[in-house]
């Protein structure tokens, strides 16, 4: 992947053919002059991603291009299920009984997960627990609205999780934008960017609804239908195109495992 280092003039809003904006009293606001807010934006990649010379411990200098040399460019692959059906069934049973959630609260809905650890709801008895690192987690709960900035981190985390992995969209915001449906910075359809297994509707859904959602996810896993990771690998290009369409400063490798 190449990071483009360029400087360009960004035009102000286009005003041709657009109705004049109205203020609260219905009065027409002064039209905006084209180019009034023009400013020069320099898209600078992060310093640690720039090509640079590195001196090794043996004194030899060599050039490093971090994105190419420090990361692997291979994309995800479809991982087949176990050869024997009975083994796969056993694995699916274990997966459904041992759901490790990534402790990454992406939005306000994360507050509804805390009660699940308390004596009142106690999700641990269903084999659900929280892990602090994506490497060990199987379930990624997108808890509520996802801004573009968080989406970038969410994608990185999702790609670091290991193959049978599941995504639960929590709250209306993940389904159709919810109350952020006209926001300038939040996505409205989570399943365009990550393969979602279960949606839990509500704003916010109560902890009981969450437990019900996790039970539904368990049924999917037991039936072997929760193959989001393989789906992601199969339609990788489509997901990447969607992601890159809205993440403009893509300064990371395409697949961050």
């Amino acid at each position: 992947m190449k990071v483009e280092l360029e400087s360009r003039i960004v035009e102000g809003p286009e005003v041709v053919g657009v109705e004049p904006a109205l203020d609260l009293q219905g009065k027409a606001l002064p039209a905006v002059q084209p180019g009034a807010y023009s400013r020069t934006v320099t898209l600078m990649p992060r310093a640690e991603l720039e090509r640079r010379m590195v001196k090794g411990p043996d004194g030899v200098e060599f050039e490093v291009e971090p994105l190419r040399d420090y990361y692997c460019e291979a994309g995800p692959t479809v991982m087949p299920a176990a050869y024997l059906k009975i083994v796969e069934d056993l694995f699916n049973w274990a997966r459904s009984r041992s759901i490790w959630i990534l402790g990454f609260g992406t939005g306000c809905g994360a507050i509804e997960m805390r009660p699940l650890m308390t004596p009142r709801f106690d999700a641990y008895r269903f084999g659900i627990q929280w892990r602090p690192t994506p490497r060990q987690a199987n379930l990624f709960v997108i808890s509520g609205y996802l801004s573009v900035k968080t989406l970038k981190r969410a994608i990185r985390c999702y790609e670091q999780m290991q193959n049978p992995k599941y995504v639960v969209g929590l709250g209306s915001c993940t389904i159709n934008g919810g109350m952020y449906w006209d926001s300038y910075n939040t996505i409205k359809r989570l399943d365009d960017y990550l393969p979602v297994d279960v949606y839990i509707a509500g704003c916010m859904p109560r902890p009981e609804a969450l437990l019900q959602g996790f039970e539904d996810l368990k049924k999917l896993i037991r039936a072997g239908k929760a193959e989001g990771a393989n789906q992601y690998a199969e339609r990788f290009d489509w997901y990447k195109a969607n992601q890159k369409q809205i993440i403009h400063d893509w300064d990371m490798p395409d697949y961050n495992w």
């Binding site: 934008g177 006209d182 996505i187 409205k188």
Partner: peptide, 11 residues
């Protein structure tokens, strides 16, 4: 938002 983010119909 309408121009940039995909919309789910039925809202």
């Amino acid at each position: 938002s309408e121009e940039n983010y995909n919309h789910r119909p039925g809202r």
